[in-house]
Structures are given as C-alpha cells and as structure tokens.
Simulated assay, not measured.
Amino acid sequence: MIEVGATLPEATFSQIKDGEMINPHTNNLFANKKVVLFAVPGAFTPTCSQAHLPGYVALADKLSDKGVDSIVCLSVNDAFVMDAWGKALNAEHVIMLADGNAQFTQAIGLDMDTDSFGGIRSQRYSMLVEDGIVKALNLEDPGRFEVSDAETMLKSL
C-alpha cells in the first residue's frame, strides 16, 4: 500500500472534458501541483453521492484558498459514468477521473474486491499530493466515512 512520502506511480486515466474523451497521465495531473485526491468505491452510490463528493464540491473554494490547485475524484468506473455523476452533483470544480481498469488503484495497493457489488473497486480514501509525492493519506476502514471527507482535509492544510 502506498504511504506518505511515496511518489505516485505512472498511470493513464480516462476523463470526459468538454464532451470529449481524454486520457490524462499521472504526471499531467500531479506534477508541479498541490492536489487533493479522493477515491470512492463507486459513482452514484449512497455515501459517495450524499456526503463524499458533495463535501468536496461545497468546500472547493476553501481548499483553493489553502493553495490546492485541483481536486480529483477517482473511482473504478468508466469516464462516462464519472462525467454524468459530476454533472448530477454540480461538481464543476472537481476533476472526475475514471480508473476504469483499476490500474492506478491496484498500483497504489488501495483496491478491494467487492465481489458481486462490482468486482475490483477502490477503497475510500483521500490524499494530499504535492508534485506527485503523497503528503497525507486518510484511509477509511471498510464501511466507514470518517477521515476522507473534505472537512478533515481542509483542517489538515
């Protein structure tokens, strides 16, 4: 599992931007930037839609005021689902990133097998990444939502 002080591995993601599919790489998203990355087990799922993503949407300006260059929401879903979810929750200041094949999630060791729920998914976490280096990692215990929320991240900055 990735730890504080580690460099994020190189990975390619999928994203819908201005109606077009793009494939940003880890270095495009994190190099020379201060980024809050949070991951959810699945788009449109209850805790993710009612609390996790909405918290980051609500506090985007305050995170920016603390020097955060971008907020990234990651899920092992496809880019079209992530785009629709972001639009449904007015997440225009959050980069809705798809790790469709779980390449990144498995590379950082934060994957979990949810079996019939959806197969390989991401554990719920948040991290602060500066220039590709993990500066903070808030990993949730299974079934919990206590430390990866936007308010906790904001307080830590």
Results as ranks from 00 to 15, higher is better:
residue 49 S to L: 07
residue 50 Q to D: 15
residue 50 Q to I: 03
residue 50 Q to F: 01
residue 51 A to E: 14
residue 51 A to N: 15
residue 53 L to N: 06
residue 54 P to V: 09
residue 54 P to T: 10
residue 55 G to L: 04
residue 55 G to A: 13
residue 55 G to D: 11
residue 56 Y to W: 02
residue 56 Y to A: 06
residue 56 Y to F: 15
residue 57 V to K: 08
residue 58 A to L: 10
residue 58 A to H: 11
residue 59 L to T: 07
residue 59 L to D: 06
residue 59 L to F: 05
residue 60 A to E: 02
residue 62 K to R: 12
residue 62 K to H: 07
residue 62 K to W: 01
residue 63 L to S: 06
residue 63 L to T: 05
residue 64 S to E: 12
residue 64 S to R: 08
residue 65 D to E: 15
residue 66 K to T: 04
residue 66 K to A: 14
residue 67 G to T: 09
residue 67 G to S: 09
residue 67 G to V: 06
residue 68 V to C: 06
residue 69 D to R: 04
residue 69 D to N: 14
residue 70 S to A: 14
residue 71 I to Q: 02
residue 72 V to P: 03
residue 72 V to S: 06
residue 73 C to H: 03
residue 73 C to T: 07
residue 73 C to W: 01
residue 74 L to T: 01
residue 74 L to E: 04
residue 74 L to V: 12
residue 75 S to C: 08
residue 75 S to T: 07
residue 75 S to F: 01
residue 76 V to W: 00
residue 77 N to F: 03
residue 77 N to C: 09
residue 77 N to Y: 01
residue 79 A to P: 04
residue 79 A to R: 06
residue 79 A to D: 12
residue 80 F to Y: 14
residue 80 F to A: 10
residue 80 F to N: 11
residue 80 F to C: 11
residue 82 M to L: 13
residue 82 M to R: 04
residue 86 G to Q: 04
residue 86 G to I: 01
residue 88 A to H: 12
residue 90 N to L: 13
residue 92 E to F: 02
residue 93 H to C: 10
residue 93 H to D: 15
residue 94 V to A: 09
residue 95 I to Q: 11
residue 95 I to K: 06
residue 96 M to I: 11
residue 96 M to G: 06
residue 96 M to H: 08
residue 96 M to T: 07
residue 97 L to C: 10
residue 98 A to F: 08
residue 99 D to T: 08
residue 101 N to F: 02
residue 103 Q to C: 07
residue 104 F to L: 12
residue 104 F to E: 06
residue 105 T to G: 10
residue 105 T to R: 05
residue 105 T to C: 10
residue 106 Q to M: 15
residue 107 A to N: 11
residue 107 A to G: 03
residue 107 A to T: 02
residue 108 I to Q: 05
residue 108 I to R: 03
residue 108 I to V: 15
residue 109 G to S: 08
residue 109 G to E: 11
residue 110 L to M: 12
residue 111 D to M: 00
residue 113 D to T: 04
residue 113 D to A: 03
residue 113 D to N: 15
residue 114 T to H: 01
residue 114 T to W: 00
residue 115 D to Y: 15
residue 115 D to H: 13
residue 115 D to K: 14
residue 116 S to M: 14
residue 117 F to V: 12
residue 118 G to C: 03
residue 118 G to Y: 00
